[in-house]
Nucleic acid binder design. Structure first.
Length: 445
RNA sequence: CGGAGCGUAGCGCAGUCUGGUAGCGCACCUGCUUCGGGAGCAGGGGGUCGGAGGUUCGAAUCCUCUCGCUCCGACCA
């Protein structure tokens, strides 16, 4: 993408309403525009990152055997009356009437609707296990939206629901989600720690939240610092192997890690003092096992091998997709701007032409751009007639992890410069070598 | 929902106390010079001050109502 043909409304100054760094940088980098309290338009750069995150979530869910579908944003109230939550949910639920006076609501979550789909079509244990998910906009009419996309009223969430024949199978689904989530967050360059949590209005006993450590996090967290060293890495986990999946969960949940909701000072004090950490965290996901709460209320049953009819065992699992943008920025930035991890960056690399209009640099930039494009890497080429400083400042702000700088001085020696946004380290090399280096970095990302 | 604050040009702000018909920086447009870390000079365009009502000869400024936004708290992916 050539910057002169793109839509990237960057701001030089900090918008007054933005209090935390991710909100400030998302506004300044032209990623979002607020339309109302807690409601945002996603501008082209923000949308690219959002789609990258969605892609990773989709890939990891499908790798775990979970099946995508798409449910509507508007739901009939009657489904929620069946579960009893129409009255329980309170003012956070946005309620709407259609022209016929029928009660609708903008879905804050989808347990009722997915259960309705399930009971309409599944009647036998032979159809199980089944896990369905979607990535869809939710609306929760928060008392106090804040921090940009971190606590919006409208937000994009991946929510998944497992249906299993018995509790053991449902707990395997729970564990499978935990492992898939660990992999998902790692691909985004995040360390998200599963922590024992309280269940809230969804209900159920087994639940973990995934927390990204950040000073601006909304939750106070208590943990053994050794948990931050745990990495799933590239290891292969067979999602159908209950023992193998459970072993990974065991590894990641044995060390003490809890939010303030479930914090136990006695257990905490048993950790060696040097490893005892109190910090703040951003919740980027949560998994629940809740058994037959919804299936019983809504008559979602299956016939077993023995011919009896039993309510199906369920759980639900969520990832805050739009919130992740904020969480990633909180975890990865400096005083110049965002530093995107390669996994979610809106463009893999930026090209800065230091002397726009110079035949040599223009040709070299065009060549780099096309060579990268042939390898499936779409660079953001800053072809504006701006001075070097302005171009560097823009690139630093929007946070592309790699930058290729092309100037007459380097070209005279046959080289361009490749710079890491994270480390600031620059290396000079030929244009061909620069393309090869970028391609190697993104191989497999 | 309790407490606090703010709405003046695309963005950041001054002007409001002490009414006299709107200003600065950035951005934008034109020209010249500049050109490896947000350039300089000159010229130019853009707002009737969130909205409604009131007081007054006169309201961004005073009064009333209203809408919106932000922050702290309680609640939350």
């Amino acid at each position: 993408m050539r910057l002169t043909r793109y839509f990237l409304p960057v701001l030089k100054e900090n918008p007054a309403e933005a209090q935390i760094v991710s909100h400030r940088y998302m506004l300044r980098a032209g990623m979002i525009k607020q339309q109302a309290a807690g409601i945002y338009s996603w501008l082209p750069l923000g949308l690219r990152v959002l789609r990258r995150i969605e892609t990773i979530v989709n890939e990891e869910q499908q790798r775990a055997g979970h099946i995508p579908l798409l449910m509507p944003t508007l739901q009939p109230a009657d489904l929620w009356r069946e579960s009893g939550r129409y009255d329980d949910y309170g003012d956070e639920m946005l309620r709407i009437k259609d022209r016929g006076g029928r009660d609708l609501l903008f879905g804050p979550t989808n347990e009722e609707m997915i259960t309705d789909i399930f009971r309409s079509h599944v009647t036998s244990y032979k159809s199980l296990p089944l896990t369905l998910y979607h990535i869809q906009w939710k609306f929760r009419d928060e008392l106090r939206p804040r921090f940009g996309v971190m606590r919006g009223r409208e937000f994009l969430m991946k929510d998944g629901y497992n249906f299993d024949i018995d509790k053991d199978a449902a707990l395997h689904a729970y564990n499978r989600h935990m492992v898939s989530y660990l992999r998902t967050y790692e691909r985004m360059g995040l360390t998200a720690i599963p922590m024992r949590a309280a269940s809230g209005p969804i209900g159920g006993d087994n639940t973990h939240e995934f927390l990204v450590l950040a000073a601006t996090g909304e939750s106070e967290v208590f943990f053994d610092s050794a948990v931050t060293e745990l990495k799933l890495g590239a290891r292969a986990v067979d999602y159908d192997d209950r023992a193998a999946v459970a072993a990974v969960c065991q590894e990641f949940t044995t060390l003490y890690a809890r939010t303030d909701e479930t914090h136990d000072p006695a257990l905490f004090d048993a950790i060696p003092e040097a490893r005892r950490k109190v910090a703040r965290g951003i919740e980027v996901g949560q998994i629940f096992y809740f058994g037959t709460k919804y299936s019983e209320a809504m008559g979602a049953t299956v016939v077993t091998a023995e011919g009896t009819r039993v309510p199906v065992e369920m759980g639900s699992h969520g990832i805050g997709v739009s919130r992740l943008l904020g969480a990633i920025i909180e975890a990865s930035h400096d005083d110049k701007g965002i530093i995107w991890p390669e996994g979610v960056t809106p463009f893999p690399v930026g090209i800065v032409n230091l002397k726009q209009g110079d035949a040599g640099t223009d040709a070299a930039c065009d060549g780099l751009y096309k060579a990268l494009q042939l390898l499936g890497l779409e660079a953001l080429y800053d072809d504006r007639d701006e001075r070097a400083g302005a171009k560097f400042a823009t690139m630093d702000l929007i946070g592309l992890p790699w930058r290729i700088t092309v100037g007459p001085r380097g070209l005279a020696n046959g080289v361009v410069e490749v710079t890491s946004r994270r480390t600031g380290v620059s290396e000079e090399m030929t244009a061909e070598a620069a393309v090869a280096k970028i391609a190697a970095i993104y191989d497999g990302v």
